[in-house]
Design a protein around this nucleic acid. Structure first.
Length: 881
RNA sequence: GCCGAGGUGGCGGAAUUGGUAGACGCGCCAGACUUAAAAUCUGGUGAGGGUUAUUCCUCGUACGGGUUCAAGUCCCGUCCUCGGUACCA
């Protein structure tokens, strides 16, 4: 009797089984070579699981389950990156408390993850807003203080004049506050920084060792760190004996071509050298810039503007007297805050010089070009130096070294390595984050709390009106201790009243060490007598993470912060593994079609794809959409990342309710290779569901025959040509699936290969053992992708051992070889037909066999064979005379 | 602007090292089953053309050049889309 495929009951059954058996828990004391750590970037608990999560976690889960079938003890944890801006937004918009909102979301999303059947070690789950995690992170912060990796300095923030609060970059729209539309100004605030730059060299050098990372990510990080070799050159200011403008340049070879200087308008020297006539203009310029965000000032659309200071600098290499400008594109906090301008050989300087009528002096010439022809654009390539004193005639790349050496000899400058990487500003003026464990006293200044006094916990009674920092506005929190007593510390004269730091930490802090905490999530006195953020033994046992899966959007920031943090953890004695992620897989976004109508006021109303009927022509090309509700047309927009604003999200919950988790997981892996964007398509999911149903029915309809069929040694013997062909196909499919898991993660082709094999498994054409061999192989290959239905079929096929213990199928390379090979035959690169030749031929033998083939003879006819290209196993190409 | 990635049928994609372009799936078309529809099953499906017999020819991997016996794949240039750009995570 065959049973219909019912994903709901099958999936519930196996999820309960896994939960009851604690199937995915793992202990910490097994030999490392038998262990494997798979991690997916943990989610921000925004409310509901979205397709991006489903995709991310389907990839990680497939690898986890595969590794388990290979006999590995897999650590596969999950948790919540639960501090962050949206929780406070929910508080402001809907009056919900960030904590309640966050933990409700976590409960809901945990249920959704379980319903997807992901094989997590749930006992290790934590949220970063848990008091325990906050406390450990504050302890680590204090360790960082101890190591000298924390400091405080003033830094510029986006300040909303409407809300009296700091805005995130994404909250600044067109230079205005997104909520109030009021201007956003650049304001200086004292902030906490971590010394990431202390590790610049190591962060850069060790990228070379990360051989299992995508090159694109390594290149982006290399550029982000941005080491450049150049020179610092000192330009005296004419008439100011005490003033020297130091510039950094990567092009010391162009120093003879300097025709002006640019200072950051905020540069301290500007005040010292500005002439009285120009002072007013400079002040006006500064005021104008203060109104702008950094993006407006230096972004792509920003006009390059400058104001003459009235002062002149002396070029130390040739005595040229050049004007000094204050310019908007020079940043005070980058480099020396001053640049030497060589318009002839720098695009930006060229544009500036043209706009302000500044001379352009060519000092590098393309070989053979005339040195005195006026340039129409900057020449930025290498070439021969001209008008450059003793260095004229040298090649620019050689002259660079020579000029640096000469500058050092004559004490006019020095060679220098600079970095683009900046220190990490971790201060946030927000409530829903981890408090920074510092207090301030009038006499003592900033004082770190002793470890015994952490965690600093967040007060619950807070008002969220969107204005200011809720912690700063709290009447007592900053000034009282846990018992409500005034907060005091010891100081030189006894005791001093102090005020807590009201800044909280950047949420990138939490995601910089969670992967280590999973290794020892319960590291407490009760657990192992160890009261510390991390247990080095277990951290060293599990790290580095063998496979880390997440979005490419984290290439520079999260992945760099985490690498930095891991190095500092090592230097604080918590680990000896300096790189946290051995292998990295970056998956693309999940995108979907958008549908909209334009309202009278020009704004757009977006409709969810689920409410739209698509109209197509007879080839299937999309003509338009109809809103089901009113039967009227809507416009078809672009394919975009699923988002609330475009209303093009597909809720995984609905999929699970209709086609089941297995089909949803399968589609997430089948529709695109992991690293590419994935276009969501409900009928594509239906196709996956159909495939599962077909396979399920194949098992059901042949249950009796399969029960009697026997094959030994894991391989069935062929009793017909059809059998032999299927056996070959089985080996090819196993090879492809194995390659995907071990090498390129091309799960989309794994699924395709499994579909192909399934199409070949015809019960009426194959012997029962070969049919069974095919089905069982298929079930095992698919089980990491569609675990529920695979487990169920495995059981129906009569197996009593669990799917996880069934092992991964093996393949035999020898079984893939066929007796004859199909060779395409080309004439001068054009396809003319195919011939069959014996396998194993090469060189002259292959050529002779090909030329002797009747089809080839016919092709040649009366013509002479001028050349024959015969590549074994690939192609025959004839050049005829 | 800068850094990174991508562009292949109506659609998602495949093509492992330069060697048969379009596997697999969706959609669409036709047929079977059905009173009918859905579901399911079978077959077809890049464009254009010639034969209308299964076959044959031309074109075709964003655009323009180049290298090669051979280019989706390598090189040079252009256009477009996406990610990041340090307070979204």
């Amino acid at each position: 009797m065959s049973i219909a495929y019912d994903p709901q009951s099958i999936e519930t059954k196996w999820q309960q089984t896994w939960e009851a058996n604690q199937s995915f828990e793992v202990v910490d004391d097994l030999p490392r070579e038998q262990c494997y750590y798979v991690l997916e970037m943990f989610p921000y608990p925004s409310g509901k699981l979205h397709m991006g999560h489903v995709r991310n976690y389907s990839i990680g889960d497939a690898v986890s389950r595969y590794k388990r079938m290979r006999g590995f003890h897999v650590l596969h944890p999950m948790g919540w990156d639960s501090f962050g801006l949206p929780a406070e937004q929910a508080a402001i918009d809907r009056g919900l408390h960030p904590k309640g909102w966050t933990y409700d979301n976590i409960d809901h999303m945990r249920g959704q993850l379980k319903r997807m059947g992901f094989s997590y070690s749930w006992t290790r789950e934590f949220a970063t807003s848990d008091e325990d995690y906050s406390r450990r992170e504050q302890e680590l912060f204090l360790d960082l203080v101890e190591k000298g990796l924390v400091y405080r300095k003033s830094s510029i923030v986006n300040w909303s004049t409407g809300l009296n609060t700091v805005l995130a970059n994404e909250q600044v729209v067109d230079g205005k506050c997104w909520r109030t539309g009021m201007p956003v100004i650049q304001k200086e605030l004292p902030q906490w920084f971590l010394r990431t730059t202390a590790y610049s060299e190591e962060l850069l050098e060790e990228l070379d060792g990360l051989t299992d990372w995508p090159d694109a990510v390594k290149i982006m990080q290399r550029n982000w760190i941005g080491r450049s070799f150049g020179a610092e050159i000192d330009f005296p200011v004419d008439g100011h004996d005490d003033a020297t403008i130091s510039v950094f340049t990567t092009r010391p070879d162009t120093v003879f071509g300097v025709t002006f200087m640019s200072l950051a308008p905020e540069h301290a020297l500007v005040d010292a050298i500005v002439t009285d006539e120009q002072r007013g203009a400079i002040e006006a310029f500064r005021a104008e810039l203060a109104e702008q965000s950094e993006e407006d000032r230096t972004g792509d659309k920003a006009e390059k503007k400058g104001v003459f200071t009235g002062a002149y600098a002396i070029n130390p290499v040739n005595g040229d007297k050049v004007p000094v400008y204050a310019a908007n594109f020079v940043l005070a906090n980058y480099g020396t805050g001053a640049v030497m301008a060589v318009p002839a050989h720098d695009t930006r300087d060229f544009a500036f010089a043209q706009a302000y009528n500044i001379p352009i002096k060519t000092v590098i010439c393309k070989d053979g070009a005339d040195a005195d022809t006026a340039l129409t654009e900057a020449y930025t390539d290498v070439g021969t130096l001209v008008h450059s004193g003793d260095f004229s005639g040298q090649q620019s790349d050689v002259a660079k070294q020579a000029i640096v050496a000469w500058l050092e000899e004559t004490e006019k400058g020095r060679g220098k390595t600079t970095w683009r990487l900046r220190d990490w500003g971790v201060s946030r003026q927000r409530y829903w984050g981890n408090p920074i464990p510092y207090v301030f006293g009038d006499e003592s200044g900033a004082v770190p709390l002793p470890k015994k006094d952490v965690p600093v916990t967040l007060p619950e009674d807070v008002v969220f009106d969107g204005a200011g920092n809720p912690l700063e506005k709290h009447p007592t929190w900053a000034t009282t201790d846990a018992n409500g007593e005034p907060l005091q510390i010891r100081c030189r004269n006894g005791k001093e009243s102090v005020r807590r730091e009201t800044d909280t930490m950047d949420t990138f802090m939490q995601s910089s060490w969670y992967f280590a905490r999973y290794c020892c999530h319960n590291n407490t006195a009760a657990d192992n007598g160890c009261e510390a953020p991390l247990d080095a033994d277990r951290v060293n046992h599990w790290l580095p993470v063998d496979l880390y899966v997440g979005g490419i959007e984290h290439a520079c920031m999260h992945l760099l912060y985490a690498r930095f943090f891991q190095k500092s953890l090592c230097d604080m004695g918590y680990s000896n593994v300096r790189e946290p992620f051995k292998r990295l897989l970056c998956q693309g976004m999940v995108v979907a079609e958008t549908f909209f109508r334009t309202r009278e006021d020009g704004s757009k109303e977006w409709f969810n794809p689920i409410d739209i009927d698509i109209e197509t022509d007879d080839k299937g090309k999309i003509l338009g959409g109809i809103l089901r509700e009113d039967g009227k047309p809507v416009e078809v927009g672009r394919v975009e990342k699923m988002s609330k604003s475009k209303n093009n999200g597909v809720d995984p919950q609905e999929l699970v309710d209709t086609v089941g988790a297995d089909a949803a997981r399968m589609f997430a892996l089948f529709a695109a290779p992991p690293e590419k964007d994935l276009e969501w398509d409900d009928s594509g999911v239906a196709g996956c569901s159909r495939f599962l149903k077909r396979l399920w029915n194949l098992v059901q309809e042949n249950e009796a025959a399969l029960a009697c069929a026997v094959f030994v040694g894991g391989v069935a013997d062929a009793s017909s040509d059809a059998d032999a062909a299927v056996i070959r196909k089985i080996h090819a499919t196993v090879k492809r699936a194995t390659d995907a898991m071990e090498r390129d993660f091309a799960f989309n082709t794994t699924v395709a290969a499994c579909m192909e094999l399934c199409n070949e498994l015809k019960a009426d054409k194959l012997s029962a053992p070969v049919l069974k061999y095919g089905i069982e192989t298929l079930v095992r290959l698919l089980s990491p992708i569609v675990p529920h239905v695979s487990c169920e079929m495995w059981e129906v096929l009569g197996h009593t051992e669990s799917m996880e213990n069934a092992g991964w199928p093996e393949y035999d390379e020898a079984q893939l070889v066929e007796d004859e090979v199909t060779y395409p035959v080309q004439v001068k690169g054009k396809m003319r037909g195919k011939i069959q030749l014996a396998n194993g031929l090469a060189g002259k033998e292959l050529e002779t066999a090909a030329l002797a083939h009747p089809f080839v003879k016919e092709l040649i006819g009366e013509k002479a064979v001028r050349k024959i290209i015969a590549v074994p196993g690939k192609i025959i190409n004839l050049i005829l005379g």
